[in-house]
Simulated assay, not measured.
Amino acid sequence: MKRKTDEEISRPLYDYDAAVRAANGCFAGVDEAGRGPLCGPVCVAACILDPTKPVWGINDSKKLTEKKREALFDEIKEKALAYSIVFVGPDIIDRDNILKATMNGMREAVEKLEITPNLVLVDGNRCPDGLAMTAQPVVKGDATSASIGAASILAKVSRDRYMMELDRQYPQYQLAKHKGYPTKLHYELIAQYGIQPFYRRSFLKKQGYWTEEK
Score class of each variant (00 low, 15 high):
residue 26 C to D: 04
residue 49 L to N: 03
residue 159 R to S: 07
residue 170 Y to L: 14
residue 76 I to S: 05
residue 76 I to E: 00
residue 185 L to T: 08
residue 99 L to Q: 07
residue 34 G to F: 03
residue 103 M to G: 11
residue 150 A to Y: 04
residue 18 A to K: 15
residue 188 E to N: 09
residue 85 I to K: 07
residue 146 A to S: 15
residue 82 A to K: 00
residue 5 T to D: 14
residue 178 H to S: 11
residue 7 E to H: 10
residue 63 K to A: 13
residue 145 S to W: 01
residue 192 Q to S: 08
residue 162 Y to K: 12
residue 171 P to C: 12
residue 188 E to W: 00
residue 18 A to E: 13
residue 30 V to M: 03
residue 213 E to M: 14
residue 139 V to T: 12
residue 40 G to C: 13
residue 8 E to C: 14
residue 170 Y to P: 09
residue 63 K to V: 04
residue 170 Y to T: 05
residue 34 G to T: 07
residue 32 E to A: 12
residue 146 A to D: 02
residue 55 V to R: 01
residue 157 V to L: 11
residue 59 N to Y: 00
residue 90 P to F: 10
residue 104 N to A: 13
residue 202 S to C: 15
residue 212 E to I: 12
residue 207 Q to F: 11
residue 7 E to G: 13
residue 79 K to M: 08
residue 76 I to L: 10
residue 200 R to P: 10
residue 75 E to G: 12
residue 75 E to C: 12
residue 147 S to W: 01
residue 36 G to V: 13
residue 134 T to N: 10
residue 177 K to M: 14
residue 141 G to E: 02
residue 111 E to Q: 10
residue 198 F to V: 08
residue 212 E to T: 14
residue 40 G to L: 06
residue 83 Y to K: 02
residue 198 F to E: 03
residue 164 M to Q: 09
residue 8 E to A: 15
residue 126 R to F: 10
residue 3 R to G: 14
residue 131 L to P: 06
residue 140 K to R: 15
residue 200 R to D: 12
residue 51 P to C: 09
residue 156 K to R: 13
residue 43 C to W: 00
residue 108 E to P: 03
residue 141 G to K: 03
residue 107 R to Q: 08
residue 144 T to I: 12
residue 34 G to P: 11
residue 74 D to H: 08
residue 13 L to S: 11
residue 91 D to C: 14
residue 46 A to M: 02
residue 102 T to K: 08
residue 38 L to I: 11
residue 175 L to N: 04
residue 79 K to T: 06
residue 29 G to T: 06
residue 147 S to C: 14
residue 58 I to F: 06
residue 154 L to P: 07
residue 48 I to G: 00
residue 104 N to W: 04
residue 203 F to V: 10
residue 100 K to Y: 08
residue 171 P to K: 00
residue 141 G to D: 02
residue 80 A to K: 00
residue 153 I to F: 05
residue 94 D to M: 13
residue 36 G to H: 09
residue 57 G to M: 05
residue 210 W to K: 10
residue 147 S to L: 09
residue 126 R to C: 13
residue 110 V to S: 06
